[in-house]
Design a protein around this nucleic acid. Sequence first.
DNA 1: GTGTCTGCAAACGATTTGCAAATTA
DNA 2: TAATTTGCAAATCGTTTGCAGACAC
Lengths: 134, 134
Amino acid sequence: MEQIIKKLNQKNLRPSIQRIKILYYLENKKNHPTVDCIYQDILPEIPNLSRTTVYNTLNVLLENDLVIQLDFGEGCLRYDADTTPHSHFFCRKCGKVFDLKISPEDIASKIPTGFSVQETQLYAFGCCEKCSKT
Amino acid sequence: MEQIIKKLNQKNLRPSIQRIKILYYLENKKNHPTVDCIYQDILPEIPNLSRTTVYNTLNVLLENDLVIQLDFGEGCLRYDADTTPHSHFFCRKCGKVFDLKISPEDIASKIPTGFSVQETQLYAFGCCEKCSKT
DNA sequence: GTGTCTGCAAACGATTTGCAAATTA
DNA sequence: TAATTTGCAAATCGTTTGCAGACAC
């Protein structure tokens, strides 16, 4: 908790209860949630929480490199507080997201010279181990 | 042109003028266009063309594996008639899309066993050769 | 003639914006 | 107290849906 406040202070972001709870949620749940998932889960703790605040907060965290945004083409975005280079696997059966240790840097090295690469995104889709068995 | 009609027939899709023009456009321009780009470019040839038809047609082509969908997180989708495995580079300066020969299969081989991979998507972002020089 | 396709208008839904009230330093 | 943040309501915008008329087989 103190850690979270520290992180926000370092970025000159006021540690409002909403910002703390949202970043704490992302860092601990590690569930790659959608905006609505975050909203629903924190609502019991902050009954007057607004979806707008969740959107605003996530955008602020994103701009300050405290979270990354994931887009699995679902029509909504997901967020992850793990900002180290890694990739993701999306299970089309259970909808769960799994972290892959494949570094986008490995991929960047395969891109022809001439291109100046700022960022790479790798998404894999299929069926996770658990779902494959049923 | 005959080729296009053949392709549509093979998938049991009626070769309407709209479907032919849209698929022909994608196969020849190879510009990874947005829906609106396709609409604007074909409008002179079919003045009463509807955006709805472009959307419907692209969805039909997508379901029949005649095109793929690209999502660079712009808030709109792009389409590509090249359905062979490859990746894409998006230049954040000029907005152009470049094909990369990196096969998603190369990447799939790096995913831990247990996962059943159906599809992988690799997007790279940065600055293309031309834009890097200016 | 029957089933499919087109295209208009309206609906949809995730996200953003405007702004007044609440909160923080 | 001054600047920032919240949260409501309304707007935005790419995409989808409903449906009547047009078209293809």
